[in-house]
């Protein structure tokens, strides 16, 4: 019946997005229901000097709480975390976040690769990585690291992306388990949630 062969041992979902991903993110957050059984960790490219407004914009239609974590904040399920403006967001052994102001990676801070890479290291095969529309190659290396550690990899269908460079870069660098439209990513997440009941 299902295409996905899902189970309830995943510990986190990490989502990367850039140009053209905003509407997709909004849709995903508006469709997952409250009490989602995993943390959703989002690294989205954003204006570095605009500290406010992004969480509020994402929150309007979201059923789950959206938080820009502070340094060393614990990671909790059922919350969507957004990398703050002008900081890289990592996860640490011990299941908490850390922030950094290191050099930009792929011309980006927050860089998707940093969040994905540290998540792959922490969660290993218990991680789901999702990469959405975007205009550069950020996230491809991180998706490869997720795959190499046994995690599950999903990209937004390039045919649907406003700008398909980012998912295509990941597709050419590593094995992507599922290439899905936003609607199907939503369906995937709803099905995943059923496994935790």
């Amino acid at each position: 019946m299902s295409r996905y062969n899902l189970h309830n041992s995943y510990k986190a979902i990490v989502i990367g997005g850039s140009a053209g991903s905003f509407q997709g993110i909004i849709k995903i957050l508006s469709q997952v229901s409250a009490g989602f059984p995993l943390p959703i960790i989002m690294a989205l490219h954003r204006l570095k000097h605009v500290r406010h407004g992004f969480v509020e914009a994402l929150s309007i239609k979201s059923n789950i709480k959206i938080v820009e974590p502070e340094d060393k904040e614990s990671i909790r399920k059922g919350i969507a975390y957004l990398a703050p403006a002008n900081y890289h967001l990592s996860v640490e052994l011990g299941n908490y976040f850390s922030l950094s102001t290191e050099e930009m990676v792929n011309n980006s801070r927050p860089a998707i690769d940093i969040t994905l890479s540290s998540s792959a290291y922490l969660y290993r095969n218990k991680l789901i990585g999702i990469l959405l529309s975007g205009a550069n190659r950020d996230g491809a290396v991180g998706m490869k690291q997720i795959k190499d550690k046994g995690g599950l990899t999903i990209v937004q269908d390039p045919a649907e992306c406003m700008i398909d460079t980012m998912p295509k870069a990941a597709l050419s660098l590593t094995t992507i388990d599922h290439t899905l439209s936003i609607d199907n990513i939503v369906a995937f997440l709803k099905e995943l949630q059923q496994h935790y009941k």
């Binding site: 640490e92 950094s100 290191e102 290291y121």
Partner: peptide
């Protein structure tokens, strides 16, 4: 030191 950034450095 925080491990993820120390490792990257």
């Amino acid at each position: 030191y925080a491990m993820s950034s120390f490792k990257r450095r």
